[in-house]
Nucleic acid binder design. Structure first.
Length: 256
DNA sequence: ATGGCTTAGTTCCTAAGA
């Protein structure tokens, strides 16, 4: 079972790339982020025609998450996170697919920091942790897949110096991520590549892709019962180098 | 090497991204 996290940076602009990916990689589940599209303008028919059932949590202009399943209909469990009723950002959707609970997560960027956007990011991590703890208590296989906007370790970026003032690498951001892991979650890509040096994002600016100046912010966290079924993890990096690519590459885990 | 790009909407500029 190949489960993918893919921040598409606009599903309308990325549709040819996404359909190509579904056809070539044939992933079983794809968690999408940054749809930048309201529910009524999503390319639902194109995804269905590619052989995928899908549930969506869109938003006009920015944010937006979805879960796609090959030859299956994801059974929706939850949209959004508890704790801030006035929060209207579409950043969380959760479903069950073939006995595995899957969440598609788009954690706030948090720049500039310090400031209200950074405060929102930290509160959002706490709200996610509350949900994650409840999921662990269910004692079922769970995959929390998404763009966490957190660079967990110094060896997860091309340059600590270039990123040192960025919200993605602040101690508070990392502490939130580590607290989540400490509940009992397994970081798939870190398990596969414990020495780091593996990127999932390359900026559009300053030739970042050409000089491999990237970092790792897309993560797939496994509950203990999912980790028992871990086969491998990786990044389908070549999709970042194609025409009209997203600035993120599809990042995946395989479970038995 | 991040002023220098890409996307979407309120378009011939602004906001947001990371």
């Amino acid at each position: 079972m190949k489960i993918v996290s893919y921040n598409v940076n606009g599903i309308k602009a990325r549709l040819p790339r996404l359909l190509e990916y579904l056809d070539e990689a044939k992933p079983d589940v794809v968690c999408l982020q940054e749809l930048k599209s309201s529910d009524d303008t999503l390319p639902v028919k194109d995804i269905e025609a590619a052989g995928y059932g899908a549930i969506w949590h869109g938003q006009k202009g920015f944010n937006g998450v979805a879960i796609l399943a090959r030859d299956a209909e994801p059974a929706e469990r939850q949209k959004g996170l508890a704790g801030e009723p006035e929060d209207e950002h579409s950043r969380y959707i959760e479903a069950e697919v073939n006995g595995v609970v899957i969440a598609s997560i788009y954690l706030p960027n948090g720049n500039p920091q310090p400031g209200p956007k950074f405060d929102y990011k930290l509160r959002w991590i706490d709200r996610l942790a509350t949900r994650a703890k409840a999921l662990l208590a269910e004692e079922v296989p769970v995959v929390l897949a998404g763009d966490y906007n957190v660079i967990p370790n110094d060896d997860d970026t091309f340059s600590v110096r270039a990123m040192q003032d960025d919200a993605l690498m602040q101690p508070e951001s990392r502490q939130g991520y580590r607290a989540l892991l400490a509940q009992g979650w397994t970081d798939s890509l870190r398990t596969q590549f414990p020495k780091g040096g593996v990127w999932t994002f390359w900026d559009y600016q300053a030739g970042a892709w050409q000089r491999d100046a990237g970092f790792r912010i897309d993560h797939l966290l496994l509950s203990p019962l999912a980790a028992d079924r871990f086969v491998g993890a990786g990044v389908d990096k070549d999709y970042r180098g194609r025409e009209k690519a997203s600035d993120h590459a599809p990042t995946w885990v395989k479970l038995r």
